[in-house]
């Protein structure tokens, strides 16, 4: 128990004292996972809309692949992204391995199928005739997509939260493609792993608490968005 209290005290100390290193790590985590989630929302929701609104051969297979992608292990993603970005790999010329850009890329690969899969389920859960009703009210294709997304906004925001939650908390891919470099690619999860392995449990605890608070705050904000502008 002492370790936990010590950790909590340390966390407060680091936070209140605005420890520059911890602050940098926290902000980087937020920035990296936030951008990765944003990219995943664009790609994932785009894919969900395309699959939901069109009939094509092999649709079931595509949906099965999207759903499988939701459980993509971060270390596997980390491995593939590392190989692709390796100096003499196909995208080695970009020179982004062991930079925050590589973490954003890997995390986007993890979150996109989560948002696509849950987003598709959300859209498919709408009554099938709703699409016809919206079109018969005179909607253009673009207006149709907008109204369907708005109707499914609750489960869609849940999908975004699941995507963000998945990447802010993953460590495997971040450590593999980022390298946990101090002041450059060290994020909350990779720092926690490192401090813990060094036996600095109170710092590890402190970082964990910050991670929890961060995850909670972002989800609280999204929940607020989800639940407001909805009439009683």
């Amino acid at each position: 128990m002492d370790l936990i209290w010590e950790g909590l005290r340390k966390a407060l100390e680091l936070l209140v004292g605005l420890d520059p290193e911890v602050l940098g790590i926290t902000l980087l985590s937020l920035k990296v996972s936030g951008l990765a989630t944003l990219i995943s929302v664009v790609l994932g929701l785009g894919a969900a809309v395309v699959v939901a609104l069109n009939e094509f051969p092999g649709k079931r297979l595509v949906i099965a692949l999207m759903n499988t992608g939701m459980g993509l292990p971060p270390v596997v993603v980390g491995l593939f992204v590392t190989v692709l970005l390796w100096r003499n790999g196909p995208f080695g010329f970009l020179g982004i391995l062991y930079t925050p850009a590589a973490i954003i890329l890997a995390q986007a690969v993890i979150a996109t199928p989560i948002i696509a899969g849950l987003g598709l389920a959300a859209l498919q859960h709408l009554p099938p005739e709703l699409r016809l009703q919206i079109l018969s009210l005179g909607a253009t294709r673009r207006q149709l997509v907008w109204l369907l997304l708005r109707e499914a906004r609750l489960p869609l925001l849940a999908a975004v939260m699941a995507g963000f939650g998945g990447v802010i908390s993953e460590v495997g891919a971040s450590i593999m493609v980022g390298g946990n470099l101090k002041g450059s690619t060290r994020v909350l999860t990779t720092a926690t792993v490192m401090e813990s392995s060094r036996g600095n449990f109170e710092v590890a605890f402190a970082l964990s608490f910050i991670l929890l608070v961060l995850a909670f705050s972002v989800n609280a904000l999204l929940t607020h968005l989800q639940q407001t502008r909805r009439p009683r």
Binding site: P127, E129, Q133, S136, G138, E151, R230
Partner: peptide, 21 residues
């Protein structure tokens, strides 16, 4: 057909209302 859909409207058995007021 698109222009025509703006002059004709359909109502279904299920009211299919939007989740708003």
């Amino acid at each position: 057909r698109q222009a025509y859909r703006r002059r004709v409207t359909m109502v279904f058995q299920d009211p299919l209302l939007f989740d708003t007021t």
